[in-house]
């Protein structure tokens, strides 16, 4: 699971109002090289919750992202490379996503988060 996907997921449990971002429990992180595409990063930048990405990448052991971001930073190649790495190349292979409100864990196995709910959570 890429951190881009983490940035798009929130807790889907019935009654939860602050389900984003999900906390990450790391068992295993893998890095996979992904082709660099500047246009894609520019398109995604507006959709990303920056703070959640910074926190998530730190949890995964990557501390290079600046605390705050603004669109002018997209002119910097160095910034784009870091953004690219954090967003696409860090994968949570094994671990869990944790609902920030209830503590309910959604397992991540072989890089796939399981967001299925129990009957009493729907």
């Amino acid at each position: 699971m890429r951190l881009l996907t983490h940035n798009m997921l929130s807790s889907n449990i019935k009654g939860v109002t602050n389900g984003f971002p999900l906390l990450i429990e790391v068992e295993k992180v893998v890095e996979k090289q992904v082709d660099f595409n500047e246009d894609f990063l520019r398109n995604m930048f507006a959709k990303i919750e920056w703070k959640a990405l910074v926190e998530a990448s730190r949890t995964m052991g990557y501390t290079e992202l600046p605390e705050n971001s603004e669109s002018s930073m997209l002119n910097s190649d160095e910034f784009l490379r870091k953004f690219h790495h954090a967003l696409l190349e860090l994968h949570l292979e094994e671990g869990a996503l944790v609902c920030p409100e209830t503590g309910r864990k959604f397992p991540v196995n072989k890089g796939i988060p399981n967001m299925l709910l129990h009957e009493d959570e729907v």
Partner: peptide
């Protein structure tokens, strides 16, 4: 590569996507 999520339709993705 595609990002994969086990879920009912798009549950968990609807808000942010």
């Amino acid at each position: 590569h595609a990002e994969l999520v086990t879920t009912d339709i798009a549950s968990g993705l609807e808000m942010r996507l």
